[in-house]
Design a protein around this nucleic acid. Structure first.
Lengths: 240, 240
DNA sequence: CGTAATTTTGACGAAATTCAACAGTTGTGG
DNA sequence: CCACAACTGTTGAATTTCGTCAAAATTACG
């Protein structure tokens, strides 16, 4: 009975998230809204959550810490992303999720999700997981073969694209309150070097960054510098 | 009718691949064996293959090339791995797959796979894809936050673990005919630096490398240097 | 409005790259 | 089976990219 509804979940890949009430009305799934402060843990590795976490507002990340304090962010989450998609299937998280800014997350009970049509559910989640895998591959390319400024440029291109896809980047401008230190942990650089790299992009008149809002001033030139090819983000319009 | 058989496909995650005849007998799937020379393309991005490629022998990789010739390997494939798991679900490859050594691949017609129980198939493929995603996350950590020698140590720990899991690394020793230049493209380093890093590991008596065979001499110390935590590879024993 | 967090800048150092030359290995055809 | 060519591995010196340390300027926040 939920089959037609959950199939529409695909829509969440291409539209901005909404209020829990609207979500519940559209998809027949109860969502409990919760606000989390910035720089807080949302999930720990090995957790067995009984709710799925849908990011409604703010920016979060998956990250891993080495014993000596070095930290690497493995994914940046934006509104519309599910923080722990594999936990829904495997009932166990693999990583830490923490907030980068103040976040609003929607909690959907796994018991509710289990009542959905299994075929549609795995199709939708598989879809998201393949998309995330494609993004991870491109991060590997960035970290391995792009120099600092190209790496930053590529991440900004990716974020602009993804935010734009959910309607959160009008006029190539979007809210970006992530700390330079967090950018560093995502890009495999130091905070100091991130600062220099951002200055380079500003001096080249490629971006404008002020008051937590980032504007891409010259998208073609930024994408050329980053060698950004959005193919890996496209072709995900709808699950089979 | 194939349900029980394909469920056993999980076994391929934990046993060495075998001859096409044995495979066909065990799983009821026809496999055409094919030999590919080293450094050859096996799949190109955007291809719509009508067979799935199971690596039976040798080493291959997924890779991406930037316009200026820089190349990054995003995954190393060993016997038992499926080269293009998402192509089975999405009917479209996202990346290039090329051989690093001479390879034997088993080709399984997608039409045959389509006859299998859908639930078991997605469970098995989802399983593989989640495992690969976990490996990709750890590569991101390596490329972002480990220095050269740690990066190489970590990759060798990963390969030893995975090869051991399919019975191809007795006494912590395994065949490794991958070029230093290919190691470089996997680790985000230059071939020259890979050479120095390998010399460092040899001089520290952590590994022995001769005649295409790599032996881990001091596994605890190598894993400590790499901060290798195999959790991300474990817990994949069987799909749900 | 004051304190903490973050950003910015400079000087210096370490990790990795580039360039170049040479040695060793592998593969091939005569 | 040898000779040769092509590829792969090894090493040194100079250079670049990025990191570390430190301090000042700016911004965010209770």
């Amino acid at each position: 009975m939920y089959a037609a509804q959950i199939a529409d979940l695909a829509q969440l890949l291409t539209t901005a998230p909404e209020t829990p009430e609207g979500f519940a009305r559209r998809f027949g799934l109860p969502v409990r809204e919760r606000d989390i402060p910035k720089q807080h843990d949302l999930l720990l590795p090995g957790a067995k959550p009984n709710v799925a976490h849908l990011l409604l507002a703010g920016h979060a990340c998956r990250s891993r810490m080495l014993r000596d304090g070095r930290r690497q962010i493995t994914a940046i989450l934006i509104p519309g992303d599910i923080c722990d998609p594999e936990a829904i299937l495997a009932h166990r998280t693999e990583y830490t999720v923490n907030t980068l800014t103040r976040c609003t997350v929607g909690e959907i009970p796994l018991a509710q999700i289990a009542t959905l049509d299994h075929h549609d559910l795995t199709a939708n989640l598989g879809h998201r997981l393949r998309r995330e895998a494609a993004i991870a591959r491109e991060w590997i390319v960035s970290l391995g073969r792009r120099v600092g400024i190209e790496r930053m440029a590529h991440l900004l291109c990716e974020l602009r694209w993804r935010l734009s896809a959910v309607g959160l980047a009008p006029q190539d401008s979007f809210e970006m309150r992530i700390t330079q230190s967090d950018f560093a942990d995502a890009l495999g650089l130091t905070a100091v070097h991130v600062n220099r790299v951002l200055k380079g992009l500003r001096d080249s008149r490629l971006i404008h960054l002020h008051g937590g809002r980032l504007t891409v001033l010259d998208r073609p030139r930024l994408e050329k510098l980053a060698q950004f090819d959005p193919t890996y983000l496209e072709n995900w319009a709808n699950p089979a």
